[in-house]
Design a protein around this nucleic acid. Structure first.
Length: 570
RNA sequence: UGGGGCGUGGCCAAGCGGCAAGGCACGGGAUUUUGGUUCCCGCACUCGCAGGUUCGAAUCCUGCCGCCCCAGCCA
């Protein structure tokens, strides 16, 4: 399959920028070095997948390196559980950090030293203002802030106080370390940003060793420079933070050069939105907590874990990301593009199987009693190497209810009274009789088959337009099938401001079919494998549900259906 | 009323002064034992708007308009 090896050419502005840096020799003898910096406080979604793939592929293309670094500077929100799930997701996507798994907390000691040097240089100070006071002093969007009364503390006092902050002499929230920059800046991030806060909280890795923790704006640029990251990619809302990023890196370079491997630079790109889904962590959490879905890995979720369980492949997600592209403009990618990517891959790689999702019984009246015939059919049409398989055919079969119409419109090519249709790989049958129950529901079809029309050896000269799938009742294997559809009924559920977004949840987003007849070959399938259920869509044998008595298949995506579309229009 | 970012077809997105790539979606046709796939063909006289510079502008200049982000001791 078209697996992304990372060697193809990219055509986005970040790729161009790096190429130019290389040509101009900006990197010296250093190789391109990127990183993915998740905070271990939740599950990764398709937007993160985009960042992971971008960073990883960029490193690959330029023969550089890719780090995984957890941004674990806030012990209140972070947990080991998320570290594990994030690593699993990234590994699954195929992004390999080799031996470069880092944690921001690995560098707490060096960062502390850097803070000391900032204080020595008179560029950072301990501030005793309360949280509310700091906010007041910061000013507003349109008015400048005013300087903290502690701003001009002497170096020795700052040093002493900061050391005692580390020792745990002060309460949580009582003091902070701030950078001394510019309280009048139009950019609020430059109004003496907080560098360290006191948090008497156990950290998932450093335990109780620290009670002061660095802020993102201090930590991130330094960690990048310290690891030798050349290109620090992040999302667009950090654009405002870039001057501060540069301030930190420049100061590190000046005051603590031995701790800096490279003068890293930040480049921002737009986050990804998807139609018919929500992406904010808060909303995803609500979906899980309020049980609108079954968990973070529910196949309807845009999480990496959810897509994995739905049956998407890493290659299809990488393909999707590549096709969407990268830019700085706000954008919402069409879900149809993601569907296109997985269909394209599975069309060529998924073996076909027959299963009837909405069965109706068909009795073939002229079939010899008790006879079973094995008919042969291709596993993947057009791919000789995929071979063929034998499917048992007999006198009682199931077909889709929707493949029969009692009173069909002119263009209906399937089964109808006195009309003929081909059973895929088997014979042409004609419908002779329609059996109904007391309420008038069709419960059975009586058909006759034409022995001359055996698939591949047809001597009848008949031409039928319709070919439908079927399953022999006597030989059927019974499976459970989950049919998934968009979680929301409107294109942009994020934008709905008057109504709670959960009001737009699609009540049909999951349709469970408990008892579905499938051709017997399905029992030989391995959990984790993917099939096309002929004419119905691509399905994934859910390994997470493998312990259940019956195999469970999740529909990744239905096949395109131009008949249904035409019907809808009329 | 401060600072930053963005505006190219329904959705993405190339383009960076020489006369609008590509993908998805959509519409039409051919092939087809999946109404799938594949294959043709069509789909922006126009680049948020208005001026200007130029032989020539989506690309340069000026002025508007619209949308997004920022006042966490979150990341």
């Amino acid at each position: 399959m078209a697996e992304k090896t990372g060697t193809e050419v990219m055509t986005n502005f970040i790729y161009s920028m790096i190429k130019e840096d290389l040509e101009k020799g900006v990197l010296g003898d250093k190789r391109v070095h990127t990183r993915f910096p998740p905070e271990p406080n939740g599950y990764l979604h398709i937007g993160h997948a985009r960042a992971i793939i971008l960073n990883y592929r960029l490193a690959k293309i330029f023969n550089g390196k890719f780090n995984l670094r957890f941004d674990d500077t806030n012990p209140i929100k972070e947990e080991q559980e998320f570290v594990d799930s994030i690593m699993e997701d990234i590994r699954w996507l195929g992004a390999d950090w080799e031996d470069r798994l880092f944690f921001s907390s690995d560098y707490f000691e060096v960062k502390y030293e850097f803070a000391i040097r900032l204080i020595h240089a008179g560029r950072a100070y301990v501030c005793d203002l309360s949280q509310e006071e700091i906010r007041e002093y910061r000013g507003t969007l349109t008015e400048p802030g005013k300087e903290s009364p502690y701003r001009n503390r002497i170096v020795d006092e700052n040093l002493d106080l900061f050391e005692r902050m580390r020792k745990g002499e002060f309460e949580t929230g009582s003091r902070v370390l701030r950078a001394k920059i510019d309280m009048a800046s139009g950019n609020l991030n430059m109004r003496d940003p907080v560098l360290y806060r006191i948090l008497h909280t156990t950290h998932h890795r450093t335990g109780d060793k620290w009670c002061i923790y660095p802020m993102y704006d201090f930590d991130h640029p330094f960690s990048d420079a310290h690891e030798g990251i050349t290109h620090s990619l992040c999302s667009i809302e950090y654009t405002d933070h870039r001057p501060l990023y540069d301030w930190i890196v420049d100061n590190a370079l000046e005051l603590y050069p031995e701790a800096v491997k490279f003068r890293s630079r930040q480049t921002e790109f737009a986050r990804l939105n998807l139609t018919y889904t929500v992406m904010s962590k808060r909303k995803l959490r609500r979906l899980v907590e309020e049980k609108f879905v079954e968990g973070w890995d529910d196949p309807r979720m845009p999480t990496i874990a959810g897509m994995r369980r739905r049956g998407f492949t890493p290659a299809s997600i990488a393909d999707f990301q590549e096709r969407v592209g990268v830019s700085r403009a706000d954008s919402t990618a069409d879900l149809a593009l993601r569907e296109h990517c997985i269909r394209q891959e599975l069309e060529a790689s998924a073996p076909r199987l027959m299963a009837v999702l909405d069965p109706i019984k068909v009795v073939i009246t002229n079939w010899p009693a008790g006879k079973t015939e094995l008919v042969e059919t291709e596993n993947i049409p057009g791919d000789e190497n995929a071979g063929t398989r034998k499917v048992p055919f007999s006198g009682v079969i199931y077909i889709e209810r929707g493949d029969f119409m009692e009173d069909p419109p002119k263009k209906f090519f399937r089964l109808a009274p006195a009309r003929e249709v081909r059973l895929k790989g088997a014979y042409i049958i004609q419908c002779d009789d329609v059996i109904k129950d007391a309420e008038g529901n069709i419960i059975e079809l009586r058909c006759s088959y034409d022995p001359r029309t055996k698939s591949g050896a047809d001597t009848s000269g008949k031409k039928v337009k319709g070919v439908i799938h079927w399953v022999s009742a006597e030989h059927a294997a019974w499976i459970k099938v989950n049919l998934y559809d968009n979680l929301f009924t409107i294109e942009n559920p994020e934008e709905e401001r008057d109504l709670d977004f959960t009001n737009n949840i699609n009540p049909q987003s999951l349709v469970v079919c408990e008892n579905i007849p499938a051709e017997p070959a399905v029992v030989e399938a391995t959990p984790g494998s993917r099939f096309q259920f002929l004419r119905k869509g691509y399905f994934y044998y859910d390994p997470a549900a493998a312990s259940v008595s019956k195999p469970v298949f999740n529909r990744v995506v239905p096949l395109k259906d131009s008949w249904a579309k035409a019907k809808q229009k009329s």
